[in-house]
Design a protein around this nucleic acid. Sequence first.
DNA 1: CGACCCGTTGCAAAAAATGACACACACATT
DNA 2: AATGTGTGTGTCATTTTTTGCAACGGGTCG
Lengths: 303, 303
Amino acid sequence: MKHLQTFRLIEAVARAGSMRRAAEDMNITASALNRRVRRFEEEFGSELFERLPSGVRLNPAGELLLHHYRATLSDLARVQGQVADLTGERRGHVSLACSQALLPYFLPEQIAAYRAEHPRVTFGVNVRDRAEAEQDLASYASDLALVFEPIYLVDFEVIQIVPQTVHAVMAANHPLAQKPELRLRDCLNTPHIAPPARFGVRHLLDFAARKGSRQFSPVIESESFEMIRHYVLHEQMIGFQIPIGLRDPGDGSLAFRPIATRDIPAGSLILGQRRGRSLPVASARFALRVAAALKTQYGPEII
Amino acid sequence: MKHLQTFRLIEAVARAGSMRRAAEDMNITASALNRRVRRFEEEFGSELFERLPSGVRLNPAGELLLHHYRATLSDLARVQGQVADLTGERRGHVSLACSQALLPYFLPEQIAAYRAEHPRVTFGVNVRDRAEAEQDLASYASDLALVFEPIYLVDFEVIQIVPQTVHAVMAANHPLAQKPELRLRDCLNTPHIAPPARFGVRHLLDFAARKGSRQFSPVIESESFEMIRHYVLHEQMIGFQIPIGLRDPGDGSLAFRPIATRDIPAGSLILGQRRGRSLPVASARFALRVAAALKTQYGPEII
DNA sequence: CGACCCGTTGCAAAAAATGACACACACATT
DNA sequence: AATGTGTGTGTCATTTTTTGCAACGGGTCG
């Protein structure tokens, strides 16, 4: 949209931290860029940047304006989606921030099913930890977030929430695989592999261990849930994951068992959006579908 | 704001119903206007108008876009208000739609008090009946609405609500002025003057009369509450008004008495805004003040 | 001090928007 | 049927706006 060009430039300047660099990024001269910014500032009635010897930085007014721009952009996308709806062709773009556990099974299934109905809708999947996901929503970088145990919940509007019990993942021949349900002490007393503290599963584990005056001390820490899932096949060790990220591979190699909820209470997997925002049509529809799937597959027990 | 010029033109075309007329309104030629509209339509990806032999009319896509424009405009005004706040000078504009009863005493006092603190804030007061007020909010023509007995309440967010008992207004020497409280039958049995059906007070009167199998039939119908208030001084007749629009002139000429709430239940005077909208700073502050004043002066009895 | 990067400005060239006019078409009046 | 008036839309010269280039002043770092 051409009428937003000035905003795009301002955003580029804010991102680059320098007029000249931004000018290069946007393929215009520094002088042209500078004059557009100055002209806009005059019209707007306030400077947008602090001019430092080393470059520029957004001042509070600039922050506010940039926020307005992002909100405007988002609303315009929504309108264009609705218009596309009117003309019959469902197109659009869905961007979502999600936890790793959703990647192997749940999200591919959901996206594929949605795209089977609406082939012109494109997707952007951003893997984010709990904190990043909410920041993504706040900056309009993602329309939706699907995260396990989000943190702040400010400006975060819950669309659907389902409980997820922490499961231990291990090789099928692991001794603990005999028991139908594991206790926390079983896990702490055997070598284990887990993600770092910023992930929801680890957070629950740490918290539960501290509560029992124990310490959770993994032999291996890995950011990749996929690596954890595979590693337990190579060494007698247990990993951790939530049910939505687990499925029996069918070859009998992998086993997973729930950990007693009296030791570790079930965590919440939450689908949400930025509070008060009207999502683009495609994102809103996809959110409905995901919410329904979550409820069907993992609801409706009370948390 | 220059970057919204195209939207302004589109709005003008929609309003005028004709390119040429809109061009004249906006002081450009029809060809220039036409090209801007066409160019935008192409960029936007959809036509905005139905081209009829007699002119143009917004199509659904155009309606959606225009709504986006108004929302954008409103948000930009809010941002500018916040920026003005940052720089210390409180300026801005408050537009509100209100019922007539607020005009003689309540609003002038409130606005004057507010402007005493913030002289750079300007006001737009639009007198609207119950239906129009809500439409004003929906189209962003007014930031706030202060109306008696609003109708639809869709997309209407209540900020403050206070009860208002219908009062009879009459000359001090009117026989009914002897009683401390009037019954509905007293009113129906004496000549009366009232506003038309679209006003809240009349609505309550009609409704109450029908309920008692009577009919409310005023001798004079007037849209002007001021005229009603003055007319009862010239002829032995009773008019109707809510307390917020009444004050003893001090010369003993006018009397007003409540009508028993078991005959006519108290109506609601409601301060509200468009649902989900973030108001400009000035409007939000003014709303807070008005809400507090309403609560102090007419609350907090339960309705 | 010189080299470098920063934002900013003057001026001429390029690009975009505009105004004036002509055209095709639909409808109402003559 | 002819005419007149309204509509939207093209064409082209003209005006306005924007841009690129080069230069300037000021700050920082080696």
